[in-house]
Nucleic acid binder design. Sequence first.
DNA 1: AAGTGGTCTAGACCACATT
DNA 2: ATGTGGTCTAGACCACTTG
Lengths: 254, 254
Amino acid sequence: MTSHKPEIAASAAPAGTDEMLGFRPLYRQVKGVLVRRLVEGVWSPGEALPSEGQLAAEIGVSQGTVRKALDEMAAEHLVVRRQGRGTFVAEHDEPRILFQFFKLVPDAGERRFPDSRVLDITETAADADEQAALGLSPGDTVLRIRRIRALGPAPVILETLSVPAALFPGLSDGPVPNNLYALYAGRYGITVANARERLKAVALAAAEARLLGVAPGTPALRIDRTATSLDGTAVERRLSLCLTEEAHYLSDLR
Amino acid sequence: MTSHKPEIAASAAPAGTDEMLGFRPLYRQVKGVLVRRLVEGVWSPGEALPSEGQLAAEIGVSQGTVRKALDEMAAEHLVVRRQGRGTFVAEHDEPRILFQFFKLVPDAGERRFPDSRVLDITETAADADEQAALGLSPGDTVLRIRRIRALGPAPVILETLSVPAALFPGLSDGPVPNNLYALYAGRYGITVANARERLKAVALAAAEARLLGVAPGTPALRIDRTATSLDGTAVERRLSLCLTEEAHYLSDLR
DNA sequence: AAGTGGTCTAGACCACATT
DNA sequence: ATGTGGTCTAGACCACTTG
């Protein structure tokens, strides 16, 4: 009863493969199972997962092992745990996205979600940068959305957003919501799990400056973000030019 | 044997205070004890802590509880755990600082630690910004160090660093090492635990541009960092002006 | 009162590093 | 062979939320 090879009963991996290639703890296998179910959309965002005990019984491991798997998933914001209530699939609602993915905050005053105004939407062949960021081949098409975003009355961000057209069919048909990550999740079942941003300081070109209502050559923070989904695929590239007169990019180093 | 009030035997907190004010799990109390010992320098950086079993026996809790406390401390980079070897007090060696605190990386090529050349060191009254960042009163003095830093042959960063003079007596006597956080820890027993950076894009003034060997008005990334020690005190303010022609600031959002 | 996650314990065994 | 951290289990009890 107490001796277990760390291998889930229904596991598909042949025993020989992981003998030489390191050790895969049981709770990570359980985590793999649960993440796979999230990817498949077995539970919707906001919905409660089965209780720890139910999952443990179903998968055939102890509750503590399920617990450790869920704890890791909670640390990665895939799931939210609430004592006394249950474990829920994480949502891309504004409060969450505001703190996890939107790092530009006003120098004074409350942190807030920016308004957006779409400039144009185009569908074209991916350029070299987009191919590299999104892992596309020459000839693949992207949907490109340009927006102006504001934290107060004046525009602060000029954002150019590129997604593989193949991943988001019909995205440009309806109106583009302010919070795109909620749309990706709700309509396409694609959950943005993390992102990597590369920041530079640049001088604005004439066209960019005009759209933001400032003089050409004004310094701006250029943020090049690549967003990755649950299964590790790059799903969005976002190039932002930010005015930082009255706002700053906040980075916590821990 | 199995019933325990979650209160360490030698705890100084009266029982009445935490009855109404929430619940403090045992492992957090243990963590508090261990962090306090780190602050007091009971173990030096790089040194091994007693084993989980020893700590558990000494403190009077189970090994699992000590384990959970140490796990949290490892997540906060206060200690490093190495399977089969032990648990060690975290060091501020270059590899660690490079990944945890230094986010400016070359666009191409390896991530590396910057060289430094000190321009000048002054001891003066803290200005308004420094007072705010470091929690000082008018009249308190700071040590101010200016350095030029480079990732390759050309200078890339102009850094102005301020620390409360009271915290670091004699800091300006000897040479200033490249890796200051190791000095803070080794010579003054002050461990930098985390930092908060605020980024803006600015145009370089004439004096700054000259020091960096570029034209006045060149856009630069301005990083305003406040570093905090183990016990939550602000111990350093660092203002960096970075050229981002061939490097970028890397921020991982998870 | 019932159900959920959160804590704590005790003990067995595994993986890893050193002697 | 020994000692360390890492995993897994089983069971008890606590804190929180909801009916």
